[in-house]
Design a protein around this nucleic acid. Structure first.
Length: 281
DNA sequence: GCGGGTGTTCACGC
DNA sequence: CGCGTGAACACCCG
């Protein structure tokens, strides 16, 4: 799932297909990801879904919520009368149930919501709705692109920091929702070397980076998210951004600007970092 | 067998 | 305290 566009794609699906259903029962195949008392969701109606950074909620009629983070390989897949005959991704294991299915929410009207997670890094926390934003992960979340992150706020976040620009824009407590794919592509679009320190950026570069972050994520919304790894939407279908990425995952390939440069892969903040030395200064 | 993977958190060293 | 690095979580893929 993983980053803001993918998580937003899941949220749209939850809103369309899951909100309004009552959770009739919960089948826990592997209890690993679940925290909290399952009894607080059984028999309750899903009244809304929210996305907070890369996190999700399903809010229930009894003022309890499911707070969900799918980390790298979690999937939420809905199957019901409306989705009969919908083709799902076999390659991204969007089929259900499968050996990575840990939880099955049985909903009314003969439908189900499946939670799959190959690497089991994700979590589903059951807690009072009023406590969701008290979870450290949500409480410490920085402003989000397309929500409350303005250019002015972005300038203040970036300005004067001695840290590298790439880890900074991926720091969820500074900015909510940006991950490795879009950080790499935004820096490329803004022609900024990921090794630069934040404070070295000129005002025009900060503006360009802000615009680029929005642009690459908007492109991804249109492509249905990035399915490089295991992301699928609520119907189990892949997104297409991975076929349109600028530099992410393209080590050794020609620079998309066709300037004679090749895309280099380095490690920065422990994450794979892709850029063109020729046009990213 | 080895390295690397859309994320987050923690431990450690400076 | 802040910042960087590396590891851990667990498992598949090339």
């Amino acid at each position: 799932m993983p980053e803001l566009p993918e998580t937003e794609t899941i949220k749209k699906g939850l809103q369309k297909y899951v909100v309004g259903h009552t959770i009739e029962n919960v089948q826990v195949l592997h209890p690993g990801p679940i925290q909290g008392d399952i009894n607080n969701v059984i028999g309750k109606k899903v009244i809304s879904s929210r996305r907070i950074g890369k996190g999700l909620t399903l809010d229930l009629s009894n003022e309890y919520s499911l707070a969900i983070h799918v980390k790298l390989t979690g999937q939420l897949i809905y199957r019901g009368l409306e989705t009969q005959g919908v083709k799902v991704s076999e390659t991204k294991v969007g089929t259900v149930p499968n050996k990575f299915t840990h939880v099955i929410f049985k909903l009314d009207h003969d439908s189900k919501l499946y939670y799959n997670d190959q690497r089991r890094f994700g979590w589903i926390k059951i807690l009072k709705t009023s406590d969701v934003l008290e979870l450290a992960f949500f409480k410490n979340m920085g402003p989000e692109p397309f929500k409350d992150l303005t250019l002015g706020k972005f300038e203040n976040i970036v300005k004067g920091k001695s840290t590298n620009i790439k880890p900074l824009i991926m720091d969820q407590t500074k900015i909510g929702g940006v991950g490795n794919i879009y950080a790499n592509d935004a820096l490329f679009r803004a022609k900024i070397d990921p090794n630069r320190t934040s404070k070295s950026l000129a005002p025009s570069e900060i503006r360009s980076l802000y615009d680029s972050l929005l642009a690459v994520m908007e492109k991804s919304f249109k492509e249905g998210g990035a399915s490089e790894l295991s992301f699928v939407n609520i119907l189990g279908q892949e997104g297409n951004y991975q076929n349109h990425s600028l530099v992410y995952g393209k080590a050794g390939k020609k620079c998309p600007r066709n300037d004679g440069g090749a895309i280099k892969r380095i490690a920065l903040g422990g994450r794979g970092t892709f850029y063109c030395e020729k046009c990213q200064k």
